[in-house]
């Protein structure tokens, strides 16, 4: 499979990037979406190393749940690393029937 790289501006929440490619007269359509899931931590609980560890576990549990409950017509492509202190984590999805 050949790859092409298309630069697009940052997607806002609920925005979908539709990419339509025509190869040999055959049109193929791909839809991508960047979703934001909660990634916040109760700051009062992050006071010791041990608490910090548990906070990370809470974040992971929350992320797993968000991914598990997401629209099954979309498949997860990539999880982006959140900035320090970010309240949301971004996840790239691709629509399954667009593949």
């Amino acid at each position: 499979m050949k790859e092409i790289c298309i630069p697009i501006s940052n997607l806002g929440e609920d925005e979908i990037a539709d990419v339509i490619v025509t190869v040999g007269g055959k049109k193929m359509s791909y839809s991508f979406r960047v979703e934001s899931f909660p990634w916040s931590v109760d700051s009062e609980s992050v006071s010791t190393d041990e608490d910090s560890f548990h906070a990370t576990i809470d974040q992971i549990i929350q992320l797993r749940s968000s991914i598990a409950n997401y629209d099954s017509n979309w498949e997860l492509i990539q999880i982006f690393t959140p900035r320090p202190g970010a309240t949301h984590i971004q996840v790239l999805y691709r629509k399954k029937n667009g593949h």
Binding site: T56, Q59, I60, L63, R64, I67, A68, L76, I79
Partner: peptide
């Protein structure tokens, strides 16, 4: 398998 921060997330 998607890994994140040392955990399997999905």
């Amino acid at each position: 398998v998607q890994l994140f921060d040392g955990h399997v997330v999905t």
